[in-house]
Amino acid sequence: MLSRHWRAARSRLAGSRLAEDRGVTLAELMISMILTTILGTMAVLFFVGASHAGYKTVLTNQNSGDARLTLDSWTSMLRVAGWLDPTTQADRFEEVTSTKIVFYANLNNRSTAVSGTFTAPGATTKVVLMLRVSVPATGVGQLIEVVFQPDNTTVKSVRQLGFTAKKTGTQPVFQPYSRSGSPVDLTQLGCLSGTTPTAGLCLQSGQTGAGMLDPTIGTASLAVSSGPLRGNPALKVDKVLNQVGSIGISFTALDPSNTSSMDFASLASVSSGYPS
């Protein structure tokens, strides 16, 4: 009797050990592999998404910082806009369109005499500020600054300050205001492109010492050449340009993927330009 019970107990123990040693079934192994793959894929996607978001944030912050520096630099330049010929005081601005402004500025030309009084300023510097549109369908382009040598013909420096920018809505990048504060109409055909009247304000060509007229930058490089815009003799805007008292600057900076944007705006008074 005892031997039968002992044999039965041994049989149950052996069966239990066999059940423990049999491992996992193929179905269990497949389910485990599928779950592991899903979890691994989710981890990789989360890591890639987090890395992409972080990289995009860095680029967006960099673009925003570049835009702020551009706005500050351009505003400071316009605030010291001066005359090409201080005697006539009629040529502070040579060209103003919705995306480009050509003017003369008193950059680094004020010296102080030993007595501590200011001496007469030297020649003004020709400056070009522009939004070079590289994607006409969206109006997106680069913010570029050109500074000339004293001869106003030879380029001293070309800086691409903002890499992805556009107009803010329908506002022009450069909006001139009269000394009374009224916006100057930039839609008037004050320029000629060849023989075609074109919107904008262009001073009559032929100024002594004006140098390169309508400095333009192509879409393929930063090379500067003379563009086609000249003053429209049928609609002289010399007096209009002479009465400009301030310039509004506005543009929208975009991140590289064009999914987020930030608007920037400033107003530069030029009525107190030195000399005025």
Rank of each mutant, 00 (worst) to 15 (best):
residue 63 N to D: 11
residue 64 S to K: 14
residue 65 G to V: 01
residue 66 D to I: 00
residue 67 A to M: 00
residue 67 A to W: 00
residue 68 R to Q: 09
residue 69 L to R: 06
residue 70 T to K: 03
residue 72 D to Q: 14
residue 75 T to L: 00
residue 75 T to F: 00
residue 75 T to Y: 00
residue 75 T to A: 02
residue 76 S to N: 11
residue 77 M to S: 12
residue 78 L to A: 01
residue 84 L to E: 01
residue 85 D to G: 06
residue 89 Q to D: 08
residue 90 A to L: 13
residue 91 D to T: 08
residue 91 D to I: 04
residue 92 R to L: 10
residue 94 E to V: 09
residue 95 E to W: 09
residue 96 V to G: 02
residue 96 V to T: 02
residue 96 V to Y: 01
residue 96 V to Q: 03
residue 98 S to R: 14
residue 98 S to L: 10
residue 98 S to H: 11
residue 100 K to D: 06
residue 105 A to W: 03
residue 105 A to L: 09
residue 106 N to W: 07
residue 106 N to C: 11
residue 108 N to P: 07
residue 109 N to A: 11
residue 109 N to T: 12
residue 109 N to I: 13
residue 114 V to A: 15
residue 116 G to D: 12
residue 117 T to P: 02
residue 125 T to G: 05
residue 126 K to E: 11
residue 126 K to G: 05
residue 127 V to W: 05
residue 131 L to A: 07
residue 133 V to G: 05
residue 133 V to M: 07
residue 135 V to L: 15
residue 136 P to C: 09
residue 136 P to W: 06
residue 137 A to H: 04
residue 140 V to L: 11
residue 141 G to K: 03
residue 142 Q to I: 05
residue 144 I to W: 05
residue 145 E to K: 12
residue 145 E to Q: 14
residue 147 V to P: 07
residue 147 V to N: 09
residue 147 V to D: 09
residue 150 P to D: 06
residue 152 N to F: 07
residue 152 N to L: 09
residue 153 T to H: 11
residue 154 T to V: 10
residue 159 R to E: 13
residue 159 R to K: 15
residue 160 Q to P: 06
residue 164 T to C: 08
residue 164 T to V: 15
residue 165 A to C: 12
residue 169 G to F: 07
residue 170 T to I: 10
residue 170 T to C: 05
residue 174 F to C: 04
residue 175 Q to D: 06
residue 178 S to F: 05
residue 179 R to Y: 12
residue 180 S to G: 10
residue 182 S to Y: 14
residue 182 S to I: 12
residue 183 P to K: 09
residue 185 D to M: 02
residue 188 Q to S: 12
residue 188 Q to E: 14
residue 189 L to I: 14
residue 190 G to R: 01
residue 191 C to L: 05
residue 192 L to Y: 02
residue 193 S to E: 12
residue 194 G to R: 03
residue 195 T to L: 13
residue 195 T to M: 09
